[in-house]
Simulated assay, not measured.
Amino acid sequence: MRETGNAAGPVLLLIHGGGVAGWMWDAQIDHFGPRYRVLVPDLPGHGHSHDTAFTTSAAVVAELAAYLGQLPAGTDVTVAGFSLGAQLALELAASHPEVVTRVVITSALTRGIPLPSLSHWLVRLTAPLARQTWFAKLQAKSLYIPDDLLDDYIRTSKTLPKESLIALTRANAEFRTPSAWRRFPGAVLLLAGAKEPRALREGMRQLGHDHSKSELIVHEHAGHGLPLQYPEWFNARVEGWIRANLA
């Protein structure tokens, strides 16, 4: 777990998506660091944690909850996640509300994907391509990776183990909103791009419908990469919302 920013500030835990790593939050670290104690993990299989296998989302959530549980009682904690990281943030808030004050969910898939077995087969087939620079560059463009982070993305792609990639793809495809979500007592910010898949956008709207303290904001020009594609917009919305929902 990387810890940076203002050690005396409220905690902001940033959980990256699948196939990237903690470096995807560089713009957020620069923005929030002066005022927040920023926690940035590299999920199993990714970045500095590539030697640790990604097994299940539940295992990752348990580890994050244990880490937050070591903070002093009453610590103000905002958890923000993107894509796979948003699923983890959602599960963390729902299953361990005692360590999460509020949560930001960005672009979480909550209704699974069609033909998951076919998807898993394709991932197994194409996994070796992720280690090819030309393929990684194509993927980076679809994920809105900025030029200054391209080397980080290529390095992460080349070191992400095949079995971890398959496991996280399965976790993403099989994720469903936990029943305890409705009972999370904190405030919820939901962010998505209007150009993301329809099923994802509908699922995000359902998350808002299911939680009485939620706010949904859709960026009309964004695809599936909002924190990277429009970092200034993302940072301003998140910080303004945190300030408006201080405990």
Rank of each mutant, 00 (worst) to 15 (best):
K141H: 09
L168V: 14
D147Y: 01
L165D: 06
S57W: 11
T133M: 11
V99T: 12
G225E: 06
G17K: 07
L149T: 05
T156R: 10
G240M: 08
A53G: 10
K213V: 03
G193T: 03
R131V: 03
H209V: 12
E63K: 14
L125G: 02
G9A: 09
G47S: 13
A94D: 07
K213Y: 09
E232L: 12
G223F: 00
P72Q: 07
E220D: 11
V60Y: 02
T169D: 10
L43H: 05
A93M: 13
P10T: 11
L149M: 12
S164N: 06
P128M: 05
A222T: 05
V11T: 05
L68R: 01
A236G: 10
T159M: 14
R198M: 14
A58P: 04
A136H: 02
E196K: 01
Y153M: 10
N245I: 00
G47F: 15
M24W: 14
N245C: 00
H46C: 13
R131A: 09
E174C: 02
H209W: 12
G69R: 04
D151T: 09
P178S: 08
R111E: 09
T101P: 03
R205T: 11
H50M: 07
E98Q: 15
F234Q: 10
L207Q: 03
A167H: 05
A244H: 07
A167I: 06
A192L: 12
F54L: 10
G208E: 06
L207C: 03
K141C: 08
H219T: 03
H221P: 01
T159I: 15
R205A: 15
F32Y: 13
G225T: 04
A94G: 07
L246N: 13
L200A: 00
L122A: 14
L168Y: 14
T52A: 11
Y144T: 02
L189Q: 01
D151Q: 12
A59L: 12
V100G: 05
M204S: 05
A140N: 02
Y144Q: 03
V79D: 00
R102A: 03
I242S: 06
G18D: 06
G69I: 04
